[in-house]
Nucleic acid binder design. Structure first.
Lengths: 233, 233
DNA sequence: AAATTATTTCTTGCATACAAGGAAAAAATG
DNA sequence: CATTTTTTCCTTGTATGCAAGAAATAATTT
């Protein structure tokens, strides 16, 4: 971005956060990336104050962290934090489906439409959109068959999961993910909550299993590994 | 409080929020209560900036909300928001127990100890401590048999539930709550996750059922009801 | 030349100043 | 006296200034 955007004011209080979360879900922003207050204040054409407030909100949501007088950084979860996050998602999403009442055809339609969009992004090989949609499916599900509270919690957890997947170089196949989403909807449509819950449990286990917990623990770890040995002269 | 506290600095970054949450859980702070920036800055002996940052974090956590140029207020959830919050808790806590692996005796001991503290507060009729502990049980459970991510989500949800209970004048008996907590631990100890999940589901349904959704929708509603008719002269 | 020290630069931490707007009080008006 | 209008006060919204400290650079020393 070369030109600064319109100033962000109280009428759109969360633009900065929303943009950052969107960018993270789309893979435009990587874990460990530095988000300078001045930098962002120029991009969004506001003072550091508003940027800082946005960063504080993102920090409370577990998306960024601050290092004293060094700057704000997109989270780089440890292996343990990554596990905890995905386990929390499993508990929440499985519980959500299990404690559910009937899913109306209208809701099924919304979900199907979402998966259709996923398929389109896959067909067009639009990686950013694909990443965004695959993550956002879970938010969409929570908002559709659940409620706004569940939706907002899942927004944060999925964003973190996408960052975790980027950090630990997930090998999870996008087609597979999309197919699993579709199967979950099938089970919901058949009003088989038990099966839907089981599929969701499995799906999230796949997501975790696809993570390569060995490499890419952090930029530091990466570097260390890269410098472990010299050139073979 | 007449005397201002020690200044809060970067070494204890969350003191203000922690105190407010503690006060809410203990019933010292009611829904709708105004939390002025200046007021708090005098109490904690810091500038408005730090108070404001704390309020922004609390806002992100769904504990307070801001009305433009009027002030910060402890949330007064609507009936719908109240339902959504409790349903989210049900999904999360039931799912957490259901997707669980074995609970060690050490963890059982921690939970038993917590219930014991609840019983003591009940015996001593210490209402603030009672309220705090009954709410905190769920956080403790999430941290013990779950993980920190689950714990922090549940911290916020239970705080909101306690505020909801205050707003809608919950008639839920504290003894009953405590007994139900104990039963849940029994089931966990017996490694009967299904039963534990069922008990938790039931427990949270009781919590919701005890709410009086008619009255006390908000201070405004309360007032309106109170002024509906004049004195019988 | 290598290692150490000093300096400069850049970033956040925090306080403060002032603007914008809502609420209450005071004044004016019918 | 009741009602409207004006004014004042008070609260948050936002920008800015300066301090504290980390990192990078330059200078010095050995």
């Amino acid at each position: 971005m070369t030109k600064s955007l319109e100033p962000v004011s109280q009428h759109q209080p969360n633009v900065i956060e929303d943009r950052i979360i969107y960018a993270a879900l789309s893979g435009y922003i990587a874990p460990g990336e530095r988000l300078g207050e001045k930098e962002l204040s120029e991009i969004f054409n506001v003072s550091r104050t508003l940027v800082r407030e946005a960063m504080i909100r993102l920090q409370a949501r577990g998306i960024v962290e601050v290092m004293s007088r060094r700057g704000w950084f997109v989270i780089e979860p440890t292996v343990e934090e990554a596990r905890d996050t995905i386990n929390a998602r499993r508990a929440l999403e499985v519980g959500m489906i299990a404690t559910l009442d009937k899913v109306t055809p209208e809701k099924i339609a919304i979900l199907r439409q979402h998966v259709q969009a996923e398929e389109q992004a896959l067909a067009e090989d639009d990686r950013a959109r694909r990443s965004y949609l695959l993550g956002h499916f879970h938010v969409c599900l929570a908002e559709t068959i659940g409620n706004p509270v569940l939706g907002s919690i899942l927004q944060d957890l999925t964003t973190r999961t996408v960052l975790i997947a980027a950090l630990y170089q997930s090998t999870h196949d996008a087609h597979e993910s999309c197919a699993e989403h579709s199967q979950i909807i099938d089970a919901l449509e058949a009003n088989d909550a038990t099966e839907a819950a089981r599929l969701m449990d499995e799906h999230l286990r796949h997501v975790e299993k696809a993570l390569n917990y060995r490499e890419g623990a952090s930029r530091m770890e990466n570097l260390k590994a890269a410098l472990r040995t010299g050139p073979a002269l």
